[in-house]
Design a protein around this nucleic acid. Structure first.
Lengths: 188, 188
DNA sequence: AGGTTGTATATCATGATGATATAGTTTATG
DNA sequence: CATAAACTATATCATCATGATATACAACCT
């Protein structure tokens, strides 16, 4: 089985809702999707070109609401079909990469203060992440019943909240383990 | 700032502990690191070649304990220096990709049963993940004080436990939201 | 008029993924 | 004891993803 280009489906999914330019797509992803799947321009523009040649989307010229001229893309029936097929498939690859855990794993190379500082920094960053997503969640709750799509969006936001809380709980526990070490311990 | 090849540091970090072949490195990663950072052969062998030309590691011929002949790699002082520099840096990129959230985000395209089934499947998979990591954790706790490295390993395992628990909590909440429970929940 | 920010598209080198190719060794099975 | 299956071991490839940079025009302040 070859590697799946997930960007294809993100773009199709967004275009299924409304016509967008590459720039618009990037903005939408940054706001609503980047929390669990990031995509850059380097992936968006080449993928759009590929989608056009495969007749999954159409390319139109359009005046930019602000700034220079836009290329507006719209999904075709063929594209909609492929999108739906993909959403149907149960297959769920997921993958996470945490540099902090990598550096902690090799933490015996540096003094404990470095490791503690890293954890402290992680905790602060994600305290902010949590605040931000909870604000998002609050706003969403007010419009939860107005559109079906909002509920699905809400589920992804809820996921973020749970995970960020787990990050903070872990950070607290990790700090105590590293800092609160009395008795018989040899230094590095 | 150019893109960082993280695989370099994972390999250096492992070789700093003991000499290993590419195959050994892959196995070590799969057991101890893949939970928070996966690496495949396609990244390991080219990176090893690069490390040799940069004199960060040395390549020796060695008889395989089982099977065919091995190439055994050992870290140099230069490699050790680079490794330590990297561990010192506070910079912490992290990134996560959850296909399940992507598909849920576009969940209005399919019947709710599909979405529920997806969440149910996710929950089952990570119930297993949690059990596995808790077994790991139990084994580690018994040897926590014997070696300094074990504590750092323990911190990464602890992270996994917290995150998997968050996954399960979310899955339960998401299921209830989708299944359309009555407004007031009095119990759980 | 000039500088900053924002809009918009595109490309490139490098890194990462996932699969496959190749081949020798060990162990289980008929 | 032959041979198939499973494991050990290295390597490569096409494709996807990342992160940075290049280019250019429009809107906005001062």
């Amino acid at each position: 089985m070859p590697k799946e280009n997930t960007t294809v489906y993100i773009i199709l999914g967004l275009l299924n809702h409304e016509d967008l330019s590459g720039y618009d797509i990037k903005k939408k992803i940054d706001v609503m999707i980047s929390g669990f799947w990031e995509v850059g321009y380097g992936q968006i523009y080449p993928t759009l070109a590929k989608l056009v040649t495969e007749e999954l989307v159409l390319k139109h010229k359009g005046a930019g609401s602000k700034g220079p001229e836009k290329n507006i893309y719209s999904i075709t029936d063929k594209g909609r079909g492929l999108l739906k097929e993909w959403v149907m498939l149960p297959e769920q690859k997921e993958y996470t990469k945490y540099e902090i855990l990598l550096k902690l794993f090799f933490g015996s190379l540096v003094p404990d203060e470095s490791n503690l500082a890293r954890i402290e920094d992680f905790k602060e960053r994600h305290t902010q992440s949590l605040q931000q997503i909870q604000m998002f969640k609050g706003n969403l709750e007010r419009v939860l019943h107005t559109e079906k799509d909002h509920l699905y969006f809400y589920l992804t936001v809820l996921f973020g909240e749970h995970v960020y809380k787990a990050y903070l709980d872990w950070a607290e526990e990790a700090k105590e383990l590293l800092a609160g070490k009395p008795d018989e311990e040899l230094n590095q």
